[in-house]
Design a protein around this nucleic acid. Structure first.
Length: 422
RNA sequence: GUGGGUGUAGCUCAAUGGUUAGAGCACUGGACUGUGGCUCCAGGUGUUGUGGGUUCGAGUCCCAUCACCCACCCCA
């Protein structure tokens, strides 16, 4: 009777060695850099009441309309697996009265997000983000600081050649005017637009600006530009942001057509992309959301944040091929007594923090040596019957081929001294 | 949700509609009885993703289904 074999759910994946070491490296770098910028960790639930996503991301957004993992729990509540982190962070911020902490309040979080989408390169149904949110300061200095932090982080993990794009999409005062201008402009050209853009005209006219269809690109040549519609406050906010970024030497470009898909953004939006990723080329994106905390029942609180996509980051870091960790010592044995004694010696190394693998009786010494080599161990210790009798143990450095013998009692000091040199 | 591509050994892939589906890599052992890498030899696993259909005969052709990949939409 053949046993049923199971596969992971569509669009989700296992993360295992050697990739897991890249993940750990990225996570460690993030924590270290966020720490010096004053960001503290939040552990947020992966499910929330459905309403918080509908409210924040927007009822007509694609995420809410067709991509959420939503279910009814046994108490009849509508629950959703989070499709992004900002809504949860804001809910947490308001619920726990974090606005009473000295401002700005700066937080980061990481973990899986869920969207029911068709998987493709760089897009999964369960994907991981590291997100950052800073509350309580409307000054563009804060925007600049977190963009600078993002840049430092990306460089720390060895990435370069990324594109930083920024834009300002205005606030609740000036954006409606721009939206109306767009509607007015495209109303006479509707017939020349692609079907998707006709839909965008109804739902989110700003999106027409980054359509890839040639006809639409042609039609929008003379479309109104967002910068012409920004109110005085938004203009000065954006220009100060730009001058600080220049001072901090962040190599950005302004992309006036960059529009984010989430409704809650105000003023600053930004995106970091790579040409090496395929169609889904954003590795990080974020922006300001000055209205959301108030929307969620908190005091009026400006905020700005971003999220980075872990899988996309990992794909980029992979090119810089890091070596996978390997055991420092391999103990090969000949004979039953030696094989047992090897376990005791191994414990001694492990107590000192040294990764040791042990060969077991049954395999020839030759094959144990071969295995040690494949493990990429630095040293092999050889323990046979005669060594055991003499209270000594053979050693061989697999990197340079040198070999010798040392007393069993001295082996720890001997190797510890030599391992430090590797 | 839409479109295209691909499913054969653990991995990468062969096999004109025709016997018992092969190779490389990897793995294990040996040549070299207790010293890795190089070389050589030996060892074995497949319900050809799944279910139907056409045919004397299907890994190969057809249909369905599932999974993966890529793109659209959208996004990290």
């Amino acid at each position: 009777m053949k046993k049923q074999r199971y596969n992971a759910v569509k669009g989700v994946q296992d993360i295992l060695p050697p990739d897991i070491y890249i993940w750990q490296k990225i996570e460690a770098a993030a924590k270290e850099i966020f720490r010096v910028y004053g960001f503290q960790e939040l552990r947020l639930p992966i499910m929330e009441p459905t309403a918080i996503f509908v409210r924040s991301i927007g009822e007509t957004s694609d995420i809410v309309e067709k991509e959420m993992y939503t279910f009814t729990d046994k108490g009849g509540r509508s629950i959703t697996l989070r499709p992004e982190g900002t809504a949860s962070a804001v809910r947490c911020y308001v619920q726990n009265h974090l606005y009473n902490l000295p401002s700005p309040q700066k937080f980061f979080y990481s973990g899986p997000m869920f969207r029911y989408e068709r998987p493709q390169k760089g897009r999964l149904r369960q994907f991981y983000q590291i997100g950052v949110e800073a509350f309580g300061v409307s000054e563009p200095k804060l925007d600049a600081e977190i963009i600078a932090m993002l840049r430092v982080f990306l460089e720390r993990i060895g990435l370069s050649g990324l594109n930083f794009e920024i834009n300002s999409i205005g606030c609740e005062k000036c954006r409606p005017g721009y939206r109306d201008a767009l509607l007015d402009f495209f109303s006479s050209r509707l017939d020349s637009l692609c079907p998707d853009c006709k839909r965008r005209y109804e739902q989110n006219p700003l999106r027409i600006l980054d359509c890839k269809v040639d006809a639409c690109i042609e039609q929008r040549k003379d479309a109104p530009v967002v910068s012409d519609f920004l109110c005085d406050e938004c203009v000065s906010h954006f220009s100060e942001l730009r001058s600080i970024l220049e001072m901090l030497d962040v190599p950005y470009v302004v992309n006036p057509t960059m529009v984010r898909g989430l409704d809650y953004y105000t003023r600053t939006t930004f995106e970091v992309t790579s040409e090496r990723l395929g169609a889904q080329n954003a590795v990080a994106a974020g922006g300001r959301y000055d209205r959301l905390v108030e929307e969620f029942g908190g005091p009026p609180t400006p905020a700005v944040g971003f999220a980075v996509g872990m899988e996309r980051l990992v794909a980029l870091v992979k090119d810089t091929a890091d070596s996978v960790p390997s055991p420092e010592v391999f103990i090969a044995t000949v004979g039953k007594d030696a094989a047992q004694k090897a376990l005791l010696i191994a414990e001694g190394f492990r107590a000192k923090g040294v990764w040791v693998e042990v060969g077991y009786e049954g395999a020839s010494l030759r094959s144990q040596m071969r295995r040690a080599d494949r493990f990429n161990a630095n040293y092999v210790l050889i323990l046979g019957e005669d060594e055991l009798k003499r209270g000594r143990i053979g050693w061989k450095n697999l990197k340079d081929g040198s070999a010798g013998e040392v007393g069993i009692q001295e082996v720890y000091d001997f190797l510890q001294k030599n391992l430090n040199k590797i």
